[in-house]
Design a protein around this nucleic acid. Structure first.
Lengths: 115, 115
DNA sequence: AGAGGTACTAACTTTTTGGAAAGTATTAAT
DNA sequence: ATTAATACTTTCCAAAAAGTTAGTACCTCT
């Protein structure tokens, strides 16, 4: 196992590294929504059920810091901030799709229906 | 977003469901090692750096409970228990591979070398 | 009698993640 | 003067995931 350090955190394998970038409860839902359009903070919040302001802000910041999304601030009042996906962010989309389809497959096997 | 309940836990999307089955720090490393051979508890422990007895046991139990692996106990002393992957478990392998390759790609972009 | 091997199990602590609720800044509209 | 709008920030708290340490059962071998 190729274990390594990055930003003072120890990773045991590439899977862990990938999941640290795009895993967690909210990052994939966010990237998924930005995949082919620009969205404002408020739009994302309305579109992602149950997410809180704090979680949305912190996840957007992390995604930005790691180059998956771009944050454009307009100096107006009230504030306007637009989020868009970057080329790097786009590379995550097929991965998310793969995992999503796998999830659907597992759900089907368990007989889960979402109505 | 198709939100749903399963075993008293609320899921917001299929990605979350999938990651609950095969995510976390240890499940993919375990499945990865079982992908084409049967292994004993002690072998897995030796092969997966940093994992503790507790984590190995609990993750194996969860994987078994969800049908990804099979647990075969031999009534001998000292104890002998063999773990193998099931057909359902095998369906996870390509997903793990996809995520793993994506992790490697991201690592490359960041210039991470594991020597 | 004591040590060694295997696969756990239990109790406890720490770390990480996420959530709730309230507050901030600025300006325009009423 | 107060409210509304937008995009946050802050503090405090709870739950979940993971780690540490120690111990168990059983038999064999020395």
């Amino acid at each position: 196992m190729p274990e390594f350090l990055y930003n003072n955190k120890l990773y045991y394998n590439p899977v862990e590294f990938a999941m640290d970038r795009i895993g967690g409860t909210w990052k994939m839902p966010i990237l998924w929504r930005l995949k082919n359009r620009i969205m404002r903070f408020g739009e994302l919040r309305k579109d992602i059920p149950h997410i809180t302001d704090k979680m949305l802000t912190s996840q957007l910041r992390q995604l930005e810091a790691e180059g998956f999304i771009h944050r454009e601030v307009y100096p107006v009042v009230p504030p306007k901030v637009e989020y868009s996906i970057t080329p790097k962010g786009k590379t995550a989309i097929p991965i998310i799709e793969t995992i999503r389809n796998y999830g659907l497959e597992l759900m089907k096997k368990e007989g889960i229906r979402t109505k």
